[in-house]
Design a protein around this nucleic acid. Structure first.
Lengths: 350, 350
DNA sequence: TTGTACGCGTTATCAT
DNA sequence: ATGATAACGCGTACAA
């Protein structure tokens, strides 16, 4: 990593500073500064003169100096474990909210590396960013370690168990229950659940919701089947294959995310099964990027990712303005029925 | 947009500064600074003392102050027109390279709004970022307007016609030719091209390459058919439908990106055509996120997006270190044959 | 209404 | 080897 040269001869012009403007109009820098910050606190004539000079000189205040002075950077560090389609919309919403609040977004990809996450966190202890948006529940230890020294943090999308920070999440347990209700309502009695990485917070919640609602619906445990994937299409495919080899396979499955739902559907189709006639599938996320290119249209539980990011960033801005006690915001999910769910075949003899 | 409170009573502690460290060890701030910057330029005993204090006090230099001092921010502004899967990997590569070079990434989404892009550009005229990575060829006017005042810029993925900046691109003309060669080699004689937005630089190049290679292959213009989309799946679907209504429809099509290829395939299948038996399709991008969830496996031209971003950021870093004359780097594409291309049906009577 | 002058936290120059 | 001090560019008491 080379260090940049110092400003040298080839630099076109040194940037014009507030001093240049002051000199040009024969006033003090204080007046120029005031004109820019509180236009109505200076003589109108002065104001015009200053503004004219600012314009003709192309003066732009040096934000670095402003920030040093004010002790803040107007930067929010967004920590994402991996750049995937899932995080795309969260980031989009967050960026939008940041812009509205006058902040900019510092993007940092931890690439699943916890050490790298730690390193990135120094960005803010070094006063480089005012706050953090954590798109992963997987860094709580790093937070705890620094304790109260850390600036405002908001955790998104993953339930932040015990972390001393606000979080904006979705109730994955309820989402699972909704899915099961839908399936049961359609007449299914043999249900499967394809879980993602079992360490993922959403997996834990989904499993709980799945079991709970099945119980409420009076479905015996023996009619429930389970398989595990890792949130990828392929893993969903494998998991479904396993489920289909069962002596009494499910007629409907709920999967931990959309990708695995797609994999499950593919596996079923490969076995000659028709979706939804022979197998109903409901996913989670409503990941539009992916659904666009997939057929059939997937029945899924919408996780409002854009809103998640937006809300989190708004909350962060709030906490930046004023001390707040951590709060846990829950955004609603909703079932979107499309073409991958229907009642089971009348002949259950299969 | 509220302004944050000033540091107030509830702030746990003011951050420890270099002065605190100096005081703690009874030395001057100059010595502390030196210890951190040039450890071997101080007495070993002193060094240990200072380092110990730095550690126990949890001192972290204020980057803002460092940056003000050095006149740089170590921040690169990445301007993206829209947060899509396409840009995801470019950003990924760029972020990686940035990290390696000691830079951080400031993410800004112009949302296709040229005005917003202009606004974002002020980020750097205000010395908030050291350089710009432009993931869109659509802002050249903004560049021209500011002329030499702008800091280093590198344009990615879109041919930067006449812009006074380096660019890292892919030869879309050659890519199109490769696709046509592949198709012709397979025996196809009736070729279709589904273009994306016709204002997009890649569209222009692709069209040129498509025509050129067809000519070289001795395919008469009358055997060439064209339709236009906008890079979305749906538009590809529509375009293909049009093509299929032709009296003599193509037996193979090349599309402006993967999404449209997928749409085209869907349209063909909806008409009862089999891919690749009845219709061969080759896309562009090799957008893995999307291909993962799509079947059949798409034959496509790989555009090395990660490398594009990585290379561009590396180049930017270089230009930051030292004046360089703009350069245009071209990364190679390559054909990836999968399952959507084959020879045409022997009976061309259809 | 405007100007003077200090401080934000560093680094680097020049003495000592 | 270490220390005093002047910048960097700006905002803002306080004085005028």
């Amino acid at each position: 990593m080379l260090m940049p040269r110092k400003a040298d001869i080839s630099t076109p012009k040194a940037a014009t500073t507030i001093r240049d403007v002051a000199r040009a109009v024969g006033l003090s820098i204080a007046t120029v500064s005031r004109t820019l910050s509180f236009p109505d606190r200076v003589n109108p004539a002065t104001r015009r003169k200053v503004l004219a000079a600012v314009h003709s000189l192309g003066y732009r205040p040096n934000r670095l100096a402003q920030y040093l002075r004010s002790g803040q950077t107007r930067l929010i560090l967004i920590l994402v474990p991996v750049l995937s389609t899932y995080f795309l919309e969260i980031m989009d919403g967050a960026e939008m909210a940041a812009m509205e609040e006058g902040y900019s977004v510092l993007l940092a990809n931890t690439r699943g590396n916890i050490t790298r996450a730690e390193t990135l966190l120094t960005n803010v202890s070094e006063r480089r960013a005012d706050g953090i948006l954590l798109l992963s529940g997987a860094v709580p230890e790093a937070l705890g370690a620094r304790g109260a020294r850390l600036p405002p943090i908001v955790i998104v999308a993953e339930p932040a168990r015990g972390a001393p920070a606000s979080s904006v999440v979705v109730d994955h347990c309820a989402a699972a229950r909704t899915a099961v209700q839908h399936l049961v309502g359609l007449g299914h009695r043999r249900l499967g659940y394809i879980e993602g990485r079992h360490t993922a917070p959403r997996s834990i919640e989904q499993l709980r919701g799945f079991k709970k609602e099945a119980k409420i619906a009076g479905i015996p445990t023996s009619a429930l089947s389970f398989a595990r994937g890792d949130f990828t299409v392929r893993s969903g495919e494998n998991a479904m294959s396993q489920l289909l080899q069962l002596s009494s396979p499910p007629t409907a499955v709920f999967t931990g995310n959309d990708e695995m739902a797609m994999g499950a559907i593919r596996a079923a189709q490969l076995k000659g099964l028709k979706v939804p006639e022979d197998l109903s599938v409901v996913g989670v996320d409503n990941n539009q990027h992916l659904l666009d290119v997939f057929a059939p249209a997937l029945t899924t539980i919408d996780v409002p990712r854009y809103d998640l990011g937006y809300t989190a960033m708004k909350r962060l801005a709030l906490e930046l303005h004023q001390q707040q006690t951590p709060v846990h915001i829950e955004l609603p999910t909703r079932l979107i029925v499309r073409s991958t769910t229907s009642g089971p075949r009348p002949d259950l003899s299969r």
